[in-house]
């Protein structure tokens, strides 16, 4: 038994199953982060005062650059695969993975500087939001790294058996990764600048 449209596109919808699936998943992610941003707005408008300059803007900016760069390398990993440059595809995917790791290391330094001052999420509403939002975003980064590690390791065998499906998987991973980047693009000004 084979399930139709796992690789090829269904004529009337123009989509393969996985493409629609990943977009629906991202739609639910939009609502997840939507609720968190809604929380932010309500708590901020209700607060008597809102702290400014609690976070290190420069570390945040560097992390923004890192994630944007990783988005470019991710889309390049897909494009090189489309052009049948296997070695360059691997290189870009490894680069994406490394950049994601650097992002987390950077985040670790930010977190530990707060904890060193004894200022955890319990300290204030602002820090509660900061830790929860960046923490959940960080979990998404970790999730993306797990998928990339799989596609670099055991998952890469699929390319021999079914190259089309492997290209699709890289594309879907990319869609997820760009979404994680997109969330950070909003998190950065909301938490660090405003």
């Amino acid at each position: 038994m084979n399930i139709p449209y796992t690789v090829e596109e269904r004529p009337d919808s123009g989509l393969a199953n996985g493409k629609l699936g990943i977009w629906l998943f991202l739609a639910s992610e939009v609502m997840l982060f939507g609720a968190l941003f809604s929380t932010y707005i309500i708590l901020r408008t209700g607060a008597p005062e809102w702290p400014h300059g609690e976070l290190n803007i420069w570390l945040g900016m560097i992390n923004t650059f890192i994630l944007i760069a990783s988005s470019v390398t991710m889309v390049m990993a897909w494009a090189e695969l489309k052009l049948h440059n296997w070695a360059r595809h691997r290189l870009f995917l490894i680069l994406t993975f490394v950049l994601a790791g650097v992002f987390l290391v950077n985040k670790y330094f930010e977190y530990s500087s707060h904890f060193a001052k004894g200022e955890g999420p319990w300290h204030s509403t602002f820090l509660a939001i900061y830790f929860t939002l960046t923490g959940l975003h960080g979990l998404h980064i970790v999730g993306g790294m797990v998928v990339m590690a799989y596609l670099l390791g055991p998952g890469a065998i699929l390319f021999k058996r079914n190259p089309e499906q492997f290209v699709n998987r890289i594309e879907y991973t990319g869609l997820y990764w760009h979404f994680v980047d997109l969330v950070w693009i909003f998190l950065f000004p909301v938490l660090y600048l405003l």
């Binding site: 639910s28 939507g34 609720a35 929380t39 955890g120 509660a128 929860t132």
Partner: peptide, 22 residues
């Protein structure tokens, strides 16, 4: 509709475990 409750669940969990005050 479910993701907002998932977010709210995480926030309430933070209130209980991390001492936040959402």
């Amino acid at each position: 509709a479910f993701p907002p409750l998932e977010a709210a669940g995480v926030l309430q969990l933070m209130d209980r475990l991390a001492g936040t005050s959402f």
